[in-house]
Design a protein around this nucleic acid. Sequence first.
DNA 1: GGTGTCTCCGTTTTT
DNA 2: CGGAGACACC
Length: 710
Amino acid sequence: MKEMPVHLENLAVGNLKYKYIEDICKEFYDSFIKLNDYQKAAVTNEDKAFLLNASVGSGKTTVLVNKVLYLGMVKKVPLSKMFVLTFTNKAADEIKQRVLRFAIPSDKNPSDKNPSDKSEMAAFGTFHSVARYLLSNVLPVEDLGYTKDFSILDEDGAREISDYIIDKNGLNIKYRKKLEKRIYGLKHGRELYGNMKYSDDIDNFAYLLQVEKVKRNVMDFDDLIECCKILLRNNAVHPEWIIIDEFQDTDSLQLEMIDNLVGDNTHIFAVGDPNQIIYSWRGSREDIFEIFKERYDAKEATLPINYRSTATILGAARAFLSGQSHLVGIRGMGHAIVIKKHYNSFNEALYLAEKIKKLKKEGTPYNEIAILYRKQSHSSVFEDVFTREKIPYEVSVKKDLKDIPALYWFFRLIRASINNNDTSNILHVLSDDKYGPCLKYPVARQVAEGKARDGLADKIYGFRKWCECKKSADDFENEIYDYFDLDNYLLPTSISYSKDRDFILKYIKEISDYIKANKMDLFDGIKNAVDYTVLYGKQVINQMIYKDSDSVKLMTLHASKGLEFKYVFISGANMGIIPLSGRYDDEEEKRLFFVGITRAKDYLEISYHSNPDDGSALANPSPYLSMIPDDIIESEELKSRAMKLSDLKREIRDNMAKKGGKVQEKKKVIHPKYGEGYIVSEDKDTISAEFEGYGEKSFSKLFCPLKFIN
DNA sequence: GGTGTCTCCGTTTTT
DNA sequence: CGGAGACACC
């Protein structure tokens, strides 16, 4: 396997070997034939357990899709007997979409020539969504005290339950702001404040929390996997094939769930890249590949050919690979890697704004441009400048349901209505101070306990009945707004009213579409659609907000994993940021940088700041920059200003003395972000001004944002 | 309630 | 290294 030739001329020989596939299924063969030898071997491999090391950009998803097609069309394994597990909904969706283009004979109807049925792919999805599917359709969740229509708890919900328990039981909990982290630590066997002098009620709290969740029939994300894992022990669910994507991100809990899914006749096929382990702080582990190989006695192979990046970019990437990793490119050298020194991130943002405008003019869509940085906080400068320069951008992560308060309120109203045990949502909907009846908290509490009444609460409690006599998704779509009398509750006089209303109607439409697409009963469908919103979180909202608009992508290095762009700009590669201070020997930081580099298809530019505005950054460049081979770097140092303010002032005074002129009156300027300031110095390229509260900033004259007042 | 001392933590975030 | 939180002591 490992000796498989890279040279393409050998493909013909390989194809002869696979000729039988054409006889069985021409349609699949046409897709299969386009793969390289490594990919073909992985697709047709039928070892009991197999580990595929897929290097960056090596066509991992294509292999996964073809694997599913091969099993379905050639080996006649029904889709319903396959589990395809991913870490993001996006990845799961892509695989499903691509599989759906083919006709795979179904379980129920083996000779079916129609396209594959989506419902056969219930176990294609994220670990969490597959766990949810099993818990509400296959496993006896009642054994754990739940009912099949449990709902999924989001962060806010979890926090509210915690507050409730602490309040009600008068518990003594320290470090409450870090409660979630502490519970997480407790679950994973390492307590955050293990050596507290005086312990608190954390153990008792953890127990009561679990009890309360069962009582309310809600599960958080971890509970989904945990419950599934427990129930699988005594209830055999053994697929014929388990296919796992991004295997390097698997945590212990998920590994246990997989263990319990594996039966005597189960095949496991895991695909991942050990060079892209960047989430170990979230539970994924560096030894996961070793564990897998040992536990299942797995065979192993590599996909070495990178189709994505130029030879130059791969040359830089290789410098960050550990051990004997192969990474073979097929593209030409392309543009050199550009390393730029900027005064600070503001200057860089101005520079990038111009650069991006130019690229756009030359025909590059904004979508092909990404700016990557280490911390979320680094995005704001780019946001400010791009807004002003009218460059459309999208910050990944930032937008979710909570950013549209009215929609979030409505979402909780629906959740309260489908699960009347869910008191935290009921309370919230009734006592919110903007939307709804805006009851005082104690009054809302009384209503929730049945000791008082309220019009909206009656609708919440009557919702199930209403659904049962209405029946159709169309009725829901047309009447739900009036059923809850939303015009009354959504502040019709507020400025945001029409937008709020719009979002809610859109969301109602989404729910209705979901129910129709999945051919579900109304009540069940709404419940499922709402859980889907929790599981899909941001994606649902993002779709509603930016329907495939062309925009520059701003994101952290972490968030960039799995994506690719023609132009990639990595910003702020300073000592203390990349890698973070105190983590100079941390391999994970190196892998993170590797992930960033390998997002670029054609052009990669890395910057650092001579006067960084992030407090933890030092003024010198990241040690990683010197790891990139010199001969592929084009370093263009922007003129840097004197580092110390005092030096700069002396310089100015000296200059003035030389000129022999009087000290001129300070020129007053206005800057859109820093406000009023005074010119301190000026030369042929740059201009420096001092702002109260911000200190001295210098700007390139080419795109100077300053307004001169006198 | 004010003050001094000690300890922990910093950043990344999907589901 | 600096801030937040907990705690002891007065």
